[in-house]
Design a protein around this nucleic acid. Structure first.
Length: 724
DNA sequence: CCCAAAGGCCTT
DNA sequence: AGGCCTTTGGGT
């Protein structure tokens, strides 16, 4: 019945299968080609896919492909990757393709840049302004009109005038490259004994170019970055592309400069702050294979590299690798998958590896490289745990006398202190002194956090906020509301009171002024423009504070009390990262852990520097509790209309009962019950034995009795290796 | 009984 | 994604 040539085209929509289109006469299309096709009333971009076109749609209903873009096709590896990720995360393939085709403008050819050059012909009438322009252009190099006008200190009109006169000629230049090729041999560092062995191993791994996962487990300041740069160098020597993933917040100019010092050029960048034009150009250059090194946030994993030969996942433990909106995936795990599909090595790096990577390394599934010593000048900080039952703060204050004394000494020595408290706002709870009323979020039943600076009570789960009232809404008493507990704002207040002469900076994600303001504050800290830094977990994320001599952790055991399987692990990682910031420059570094429970394993591990003990205990604790140390953790996310959510939740709880099958409910939720933009979301952790096809089970389970309303999405959290 | 809002379904 | 159709619950 054939004769009509057809192709499968996958569209970046919430559709799982490709649609079939007619191939116009004289056109040849192959899998990976990027095309424009009609869909309903409009045309959209899609990619020719590998599926055999299905004949279920009548030939008379098939519409023709409208256009084939003159762009590099998506290579087979990324097509397989899209299919794999879609299958694994139980999302329609089109949704995953959408993450690949996220720079639609990249498909149009780039325009040349217009520039002007000295022609040698003098203008009919010379003026002062014109002379300055001509002098400036005297170097013979092409200038953009705007840049030349600015350099000569004249208005752009003067430049245009000279173009009309013929004194300047218009030239068209190819666009400046997104990134110049990095040079693997630009500035190889000198390594000490422990490092040079690791560096050689990196080179071997990259040179062999085979799939395998390596965990670089090295304490802060041990030179992990320099070591994995060796793998990048070797990959570049082999002419293949390298991708370095970082949590978005750690993607600073600092890191790019570091790369440039090693390789002579900055890498291409890929993250949400890159402006659209630049994104498109980067996408195209990556697809064309002209960009050899990319440093990016998790979404960079979906760039269409044709020659990818290495992926590095730095700070692999960081939860920012988990995308929770749309397609739910963990970029660290998907990097491992991409390496497997593309047959190239993947390197995970962290000072505080996740439990699952730890266990994978322990079991020999991942290779492990340990870096245990710091660079020559840097000493490990001295860490003291302060029991606040023994050294309580004065009434109405939150800092213990031990910490205050240490701060005084640091201040006297003209050094910098950092106070870390993982709590935004002024106070985590507000209550009425008269009737005991507590301010709760109307949506999520969590306490409202007072933000005194903004004059509001804010829910940290759903973003709900209300003005702080004058009187208690329950009993009507005036001036009866009291703030309970500290947040960073309240600590800043205490610091201002205790050290009125000290310069103080607060770093918090809700800081007004956004990213630029944040950059400025970080620069102030680096340059010594502040004496005391007070910050939330932001300060644990890869920023360098070279002048820091003291770290005080306020409420170190905060976060341990949450009924969350990862509470201990997360607290350990956070505290280890924060205290690791101290002493990077050597000198009298000291870290204080202030806590009510100095005998807690997490804090004991930090205070004694015994990471091994912590990991061993944590892995064992999970084993005895029946929690998977790693393995196939899946979460069921229900997102449903508010009115039906309780019903759906109850149903999933019922269905997830152990007797129903090999899946079982592990905890109420990794994240607390949350309300996001009017939609309730619940998450359950589910475990299944190794070798059991959890995906398939969940799929049929949901098909057998679909939820009455809303949709249920299954999110697999950990360890894709068992599927490979 | 009417209506706005939210959710679901379809596009080849 | 975006347009259209259905369901739902609040209001009269």
């Amino acid at each position: 019945m054939d004769g009509v040539p057809t192709v499968s085209v996958l569209l970046p929509l919430a559709v799982d299968g490709p649609y079939t289109y007619r191939v116009p006469n004289g056109v040849t299309l192959s899998p990976g080609d990027i095309v424009r096709v009609p869909l309903g009333p409009r045309e959209i971009i899609g990619a020719v896919w590998d599926d055999v076109p299905d004949g279920s749609v009548g030939h008379n209903r098939l519409r023709p492909v409208a256009h084939r873009y003159d762009a590099p096709p998506l290579d087979p590896t990324i097509r397989k990757f899209v299919d794999w990720v879609a299958n694994y995360t139980l999302t329609p393939r089109g949704m995953v393709l959408r993450m690949v085709l996220r720079a639609p403008g990249a498909l149009e050819a780039e325009h040349d840049i217009e520039a002007v050059m000295l022609s040698g012909k003098p203008p009919e009438r010379m003026t002062d302004a014109r002379r300055r322009v001509l002098e400036q252009a005297g170097d013979g190099a092409p200038w953009s009109r705007a840049a030349l006008a600015a350099a000569a200190g004249v208005s752009p009109g003067v430049v245009s005038g000279l173009v009309e006169q013929g004194s300047l000629t218009l030239v068209h230049l190819p666009p400046t490259p997104v990134a110049l090729p990095p040079d693997p041999d630009h500035a190889p560092p000198r390594f000490d004994d422990g490092q040079s062995e690791a560096a050689a191993e990196m080179r071997r791994i990259a040179d062999a170019g085979l799939f395998g996962v390596t965990l670089i487990d090295g304490i802060t300041g041990s030179g992990k970055t320099e070591v994995y740069f060796e793998a990048v160098a070797e990959t570049l020597r082999r002419g293949r592309q390298a991708l370095i993933l970082l949590p978005e917040i750690a993607l600073t100019t600092d890191f790019l400069d570091r790369f440039a010092r090693r390789f002579g050029e900055r890498p291409a960048e890929w993250h949400s702050e890159v402006p659209p034009r630049q994104r498109e150009r980067t996408w195209r250059a990556v697809a064309a294979g002209t960009v050899k090194a990319v440093v990016g946030a998790r979404s960079a994993l979906f760039l269409p590299f044709p020659e990818l030969g290495l992926v590095i996942v730095d700070e692999e433990h960081d939860s920012a690798y988990k995308q929770e909106e749309g397609v739910t995936y963990n970029a660290r795990d998907m990097a491992v998958v991409r390496g497997h599909l593309g047959s190239f090595p993947v390197i995970l790096s962290s000072a505080t590896p996740s439990i699952e990577s730890r266990v994978n390394a322990d079991q020999g599934r991942y290779r492990r490289i340990e870096l245990t010593s710091r660079f020559a000048a840097a000493k490990l900080p001295e860490i003291r745990a302060v029991d606040m039952r023994v050294h309580p703060p004065e009434r109405g204050f939150f800092l213990s006398p031990v910490l205050v004394q240490a701060m005084e000494a640091t201040l006297a020595a003209k050094s910098q202190s950092l106070l870390f408290l993982n709590r935004r706002g002024y106070a985590p709870l507000t209550l009425c002194r008269h009737c005991g009323h507590r301010f709760q979020c109307p949506n999520c039943s969590s306490w409202l956090v007072e933000h005194r600076y903004r004059g509001q009570l804010v829910c940290h789960h759903c973003g709900h906020h209300e003005a702080r009232p004058e009187r208690c809404p329950a009993c009507g008493t005036e001036d009866s509301l009291v703030a309970c507990g500290p947040g960073v704002e309240r600590i800043a207040e205490e610091v201002a009171q205790r050290f009125p002469e000290a310069r103080c900076t607060v770093l918090s994600s809700d800081m007004l002024g956004g990213v630029p303001k944040m950059r400025a504050e970080l620069e102030t800290i680096r340059s010594g423009g502040t004496d005391i830094v007070i910050g939330t977990q932001l300060v644990a994320k890869g920023h360098n504070f070279p002048l820091l001599a003291l770290v005080g952790v306020v409420d170190a055991d905060l976060g341990l009390a949450q009924g969350d399987p990862r509470a201990a692990e997360r607290t350990f990682q956070l505290l280890a990262q924060v205290t690791g910031r101290a002493g990077r420059a050597g000198g009298d570094s000291q870290a204080l852990l202030q806590t009510y429970a100095p005998d807690h394993p997490v804090i004991a591990a930090i205070a004694s520097g015994d990471r091994e003990a912590f990991y061993a205990r944590e892995i064992e604790a999970r084993r005895t509790a029946g929690l998977p140390p790693f393995g196939r953790l899946a979460g069921i996310v229900i997102s449903a209309a508010e009115r039906a959510s309780a019903q759906a939740y109850a149903m999933v709880l019922r269905r997830a009962a152990p007797e129903e099958g090999p899946a079982m409910v592990l905890g109420p939720s990794e994240a607390p019950l949350a309300v996001l933009r009017g939609r309730h979301r619940f998450r359950l952790l589910v475990r299944a034995p190794r070798g059991f096809d959890l995906q398939d089970f969940l799929r049929s389970w949901l098909a057998a009795a679909p939820p009455p309303r809303g949709n249920v999405r299954v999110q697999v959290d950990i360890d894709p290796q068992s599927f490979l």
